[in-house]
Nucleic acid binder design. Structure first.
Length: 373
DNA sequence: AAATCGGGGCG
DNA sequence: CGCCCAGATTT
């Protein structure tokens, strides 16, 4: 093979040199993060779940609130789903919160509060895949298990000049092998975190700072002048679809009607104003009357528009319009939502809402106080 | 293998 | 405005 090693595997001496330099750099430059101040498997696990597809800066305040509310896995396991979801509000990928609670309860019930200690066993926990299992096993238990996340993929693609798209199965398999070769036998946790830390702070997606990189002399992409061009990805993604969404603020005795979205799907478990997508050729008021009939089984009269806003999800974007509405016939029953509730504005802080709905609630509050003046 | 699942930060 | 982030799960 053209990788410079007999037998086609990663070059042993080269990997040993990489491990040494990465580890030394990490120990001199590691950020002081809350989850690096503990070896409690519960807190390592919690941080790793939160960090899935989520930046360190975003996670920090959530991690602090969670560990304050639930210092031990037993505390989390004893919590209600609504309580956990509320603490997760705004962090995204809400199925993580559901899996988190399921896993905590499993650990308490089946493990007496002790986490499995190997990557192979950890993979069985809800929400724990190969990356997270390797991270927990190496950081909390010192197992020589590799990790491969977005940062590590980028670092490895550059160090080893992997030009193939990193989101293809065959390439990923090769990257896992390279990641395993770079796990330091004596310090697997620090070694894995060194790769991720380097990717986050030096070997960045754009404008990598090669001048301060501890392994620049060993980087094949840099030697080839291709560092910033890697990693390659397969797909040119198409433009995001756009939807017009209408939602209803249905007031009654100072309360508003909300529905809880079904678990498992988009924004599962969060509370929202009833409403839905505007179909082609449909007027907004017409669409809202139809949606409220379908979701709540009531006839309604649509009033003034309170607010409109734009919001982007990972795979589509929406324009969300909130209208006042009044029920003219029938009594609301949940035909789409798991549950309906009439909530006072004072209660809003106790429920979890999607980010876009949060913004609408703020406008609703201002509209009300503004009207009183 | 491809689709689904949030929200925010950055160039 | 597109891209990316300490990915997992489902189909």
């Amino acid at each position: 093979m053209a990788r410079g090693a007999p037998g086609g595997g990663p070059d042993r001496a080269r990997c040993a040199a990489l491990r040494r330099r990465l580890l030394a750099w990490y120990r001199a430059n590691a950020r002081d993060l809350p989850w690096r101040r503990t070896r409690d498997p519960y807190r390592i696990w919690l941080s790793e779940i939160m960090l899935q597809q989520t930046r360190v800066k975003t996670v920090r305040p959530y991690y602090d609130r969670f560990t304050r509310a639930f210092p031990r896995v037993e505390d989390l396991a004893a919590a209600g789903a609504g309580e956990v979801l509320k603490l997760w509000e705004g962090l995204g990928y809400y199925s993580r919160a559901r899996h988190l609670l399921e896993a905590a309860r499993w650990v308490v019930r089946e493990g007496g509060g002790r986490f499995p200690e190997t990557a192979a066993e950890l993979v069985g926990l809800p929400g724990v895949g190969r990356y997270t299992a390797g991270a927990i096993a190496s950081i909390a238990f010192g197992e020589r298990a590799p990790v491969l996340d977005g940062n590590v993929k980028r670092v490895l693609a550059r160090l080893f000049l992997v030009r193939e798209p990193v989101d293809e199965g065959a390439t990923e398999a090769r990257l896992w092998t390279l990641a395993a070769a770079l796990v330091s036998p004596r310090a697997p946790g620090d070694s894995n975190q060194a790769l991720m830390e380097l990717g986050a702070r030096v070997c960045r997606p754009r404008r990598p700072d090669c001048t301060v990189c501890p392994v620049r002399a060993l980087c094949r992409a840099r030697a080839a002048g291709e560092a910033e061009a890697l990693p390659a990805r397969r797909a040119a993604r198409r433009a995001l679809p756009h939807h017009e969404i209408v939602a209803a603020a249905i007031g009654r005795n100072g309360r508003y009607l909300f529905g809880q979205r079904p678990l498992g799907g988009l924004l599962g478990g969060l509370w929202e104003f009833p409403g839905g997508k505007v179909e082609r050729g449909e007027a907004h008021a017409e669409a809202l009357v139809r949606e409220l009939r379908e979701e709540l089984g009531v006839e309604t009269a649509v009033g003034a528009r309170i607010a409109s806003l734009e919001h982007a999800y990972s795979h589509f974007r929406i324009t969300l319009h909130l209208h006042r509405a009044r029920i003219s016939r029938g009594r609301p029953v949940p035909r789409f939502h798991t549950e309906l509730k009439w909530l006072l504005p004072a209660q809003f802080d106790r429920y979890a809402f999607p980010a876009a709905t949060r913004r609408l609630l703020a406008v609703l509050g201002r509209a009300k106080t503004g009207a009183k003046r």
